[in-house]
């Protein structure tokens, strides 16, 4: 059998190989691949125990779970936990806080990496472009504890910002302890941390744009801005749509560590989100069933949102994540 280059032939070869493989007895194949299997199994065990097994743990959403009784002996309560959750006003508060924070983040954060990528892409000097990339990627590696510590030092009540405002004769304002400002603070922090890192995927997409399109546009008299609008942006639109879908799927998830570190500074009325609600009700207060119920609802809604927005992308003529 010769190896013919080309995707179609490669696919055909792979299909042929699979057909031939099926004729070999399973045990012979296992013995033949024993080294490869020994490499795969430890990793598989990790995914089984720490990713798949917990999915089964969601069953406690339907139990009156008591840790000393365990899964088997805790009483089955059907949808009572869900009823309790949907009758709890703090749950709706958490939903609305979550939506306010994520929607604001979507509006404020999402365009920044695109604009930044267009700016970096327009830098012609390779050395300068690499330097700017190195600098803007760095904050991505600062963990949330560190980041929140730094921002508290800068914007907190004892920090730099109040003193600067005072020196300018403006009213004192503490960005980290004002509940009304909390969603904006979350957005600012996220932008600082991840806007630079977010450019990676857009820069890759921009680099793939056919240069002849740009040249033809320039020949036709399109200036830099018109080329950006009519060539660059349409060129990266599939990536933009893809990321937008993923973001919409995450609309019930805010950075858990980010919020839990700053929740106490403004109080739960402004900062309780779904994930922290689950943490405080479940792990802190022992209301395991209701907490797991919220986690389950959140998971399902998130999954439905991904499917829905993917469908929407198909309707407007984009590929989205997948095409069924």
């Amino acid at each position: 059998m010769t190896v013919v280059p080309g995707a179609v032939n490669a696919a055909r070869t792979a299909a042929m190989v699979r057909g031939m493989e099926r004729k070999i007895p399973l045990w012979t194949r296992v013995r033949r691949d024993k080294v490869l299997l020994a490499m795969i199994i430890p990793g598989f065990l990790y995914f089984a125990v720490f990713q798949w097994l917990p999915l089964l743990g969601n069953v406690i959403a339907f139990l009156d779970y008591q840790p000393y009784l365990g899964f088997v002996d805790s009483a089955w309560v059907g949808f009572a936990n869900f009823a309790e959750v949907f009758g709890d006003p703090t749950f709706y508060e958490a939903v609305s806080n979550t939506l306010v924070i994520t929607v604001l983040q979507l509006v404020l954060f999402f365009p920044v990496p695109i604009a930044l990528a267009l700016l970096i892409n327009s830098v012609m000097s390779t050395a300068l472009r690499r330097f700017v990339q190195s600098v803007v990627y760095l904050p991505h590696f600062i963990g949330w504890v560190l980041l929140v510590s730094i921002f508290t030092q800068l914007l907190g009540p004892l920090g730099v910002l109040p003193h600067v405002l005072q020196a300018l004769g403006l009213p004192a304002f503490s960005a980290t302890t004002t509940p009304e400002f909390f969603p904006f603070l979350m957005a600012i922090e996220t932008i600082w941390k991840d806007a630079g890192w977010g450019t990676i995927i857009f820069l890759a997409a921009l680099a793939n744009i056919n240069g002849e399109l740009l040249e033809a546009a320039a020949m036709d008299g399109a200036g830099k801005w018109r080329r950006t609008w009519h060539v660059y942006l349409p060129g990266i639109m599939p990536v933009i749509i893809l990321l937008l879908i993923l973001q919409v799927g995450q609309i019930l998830s805010v950075g858990f560590e980010q919020i839990i570190l700053q929740r106490d500074a403004v109080g739960p009325a402004a900062a309780e989100v779904l994930d922290t609600w689950v943490y405080y009700h479940g792990i802190q207060d022992g209301a395991w069933g209701p907490a797991a119920a919220v986690g389950l609802v959140k998971g399902f809604v998130g999954f439905a949102l991904v499917l829905g927005s993917n469908k929407l992308a198909h309707l407007v003529g984009q590929d989205g994540i997948y095409r069924a």
Binding site: F50, P54, G57, W288, A292, G295, G299
Partner: peptide
């Protein structure tokens, strides 16, 4: 594409 959530992970 999906994760189990905080509570089940903690229990495991």
């Amino acid at each position: 594409f999906f994760s189990a959530g905080i509570i089940p992970n903690f229990l495991v």
